[in-house]
C-alpha cells in the first residue's frame, strides 16, 4: 500500500472511532450513579490528556534524535515541531474539558490543584517552544535551538509536577491505573473509555502526519526556490 493510502486509512480509522466513541459516550453508556451525565466527559478528557503527553514525548525523543550527531536529520526537527503543535492543541482541550467538568463537580472553573497547575504550565511551556521556532531565521540554527528548548522542557516537567504536588492536591486519583490495578469502571463504560483513548491516538497520528507533510513540503519549496535563484544568476551553462 502506498504512503498516501496508509495516511488515508489512519484518517478513516480516526474519524470512525471518534464517531463510535461519540455515539457510545452520549447515548449507549448509562449515566453514573454519583456523577450523572457528567461522567460522559471521562470518555474524552483522559484521552486528550494522554495524547498531549504522547505528543510531548514524541517531541522530546525526536529533539534528542536531532541533537545526537549520528541521527541528525532535519526530519526529526520537523517531526518535533509537528508533534508539539498538536500537543499544544490537545493540552488546551484537556484544560477546557477539565474546566467543563470541574465547574459542576467542584463548583469552580479552575482550582490550583497539582495536575491542573502542571497542565497549565505545560501549555505555556510549549507555547514558548513554538514561539522560539518562529524567531530564528536560519533553519539549522532553529532546529538546534528548539531541540535544546524541548529538552529543557522535558527535564522541567517532572520537577514542575513534583513541586506542585507538594504544593497542594485535590484532583481525582487515577481511575484505571490506580495503585492496586483494580479498575473502578466496568462494562460498556470501560470499553467506551478505552475506545476514546484509541480514537484520539489515531486522531493524533493523522494530525501529526498531515502537519509533518506540510512542513516537509514547505522545506522542499524553500530549497527549490534557492536552487532556482542560483540558476537564474549563474545560468544553465
Amino acid at each position: 500500500m502506498s504512503r498516501d493510502r496508509w495516511v488515508a486509512l489512519i484518517g478513516a480509522i480516526a474519524f470512525s472511532t471518534v464517531a463510535v466513541t461519540y455515539v457510545m459516550g452520549l447515548w449507549i453508556t448509562p449515566p453514573d450513579v454519583f456523577q450523572g451525565n457528567l461522567v460522559r466527559l471521562i470518555y474524552v478528557h483522559p484521552a486528550v490528556a494522554w495524547v498531549a503527553y504522547l505528543a510531548y514525548g514524541v517531541t522530546s525523543l525526536s529533539s534528542l534524535a536531532y541533537l545526537w550527531k549520528k541521527t541528525r536529520n532535519y526530519r526529526w526537527d520537523l517531526l518535533a515541531a509537528a508533534s508539539a503543535e498538536v500537543g499544544v492543541v490537545f493540552t488546551a482541550l484537556t484544560l477546557i474539558t477539565g474546566s467543563i467538568w470541574g465547574r459542576p463537580t467542584w463548583g469552580v472553573w479552575w482550582t490550583w490543584d497539582a495536575r491542573l497547575t502542571t497542565t497549565a504550565l505545560l501549555l505555556v511551556l510549549y507555547l514558548g517552544y513554538l514561539a522560539l521556532r518562529r524567531v530564528s531565521e536560519d533553519r539549522e540554527q532553529r532546529a538546534k535551538r528548539s531541540a535544546v528548548a524541548a529538552l529543557i522542557a522535558f527535564i522541567d516537567v517532572p520537577i514542575v509536577h513534583q513541586s506542585v504536588v507538594w504544593w497542594k492536591t485535590l484532583h481525582q486519583s487515577a481511575t484505571v491505573f490506580n495503585a492496586d490495578l483494580n479498575p473502578k469502571i466496568h462494562g460498556e463504560m470501560a470499553w467506551t473509555l478505552l475506545l476514546g483513548f484509541l480514537s484520539f491516538t489515531f486522531v493524533y497520528l493523522w494530525m501529526v502526519i498531515k502537519r509533518y507533510d506540510i512542513a516537509n513540503a514547505q522545506f522542499n519549496m524553500e530549497n527549490q526556490s534557492v536552487e532556482r535563484a542560483i540558476k537564474e544568476r549563474v545560468g544553465t551553462a
Binding site: 504550565l121 514558548g128 514561539a131 522560539l132 530564528s136 528548548a149 529543557i152 522542557a153 522541567d156 513541586s163
Partner: peptide, 28 residues
C-alpha cells in the same frame, strides 16, 4: 535561553515566555 534569543528581533518578548514557565518550580 538568553543566548538563543539574543540575536533575534523579538528577544524582549520571547525570553520571558520561554523562561518564566520553566523556572516556575524555582519560584514555588
Amino acid at each position: 535561553f538568553s543566548a538563543m534569543t539574543s540575536a533575534s528581533k523579538a528577544k524582549e518578548t520571547v525570553l520571558p515566555l520561554l523562561l518564566l514557565p520553566v523556572v516556575a518550580p524555582v519560584l514555588l
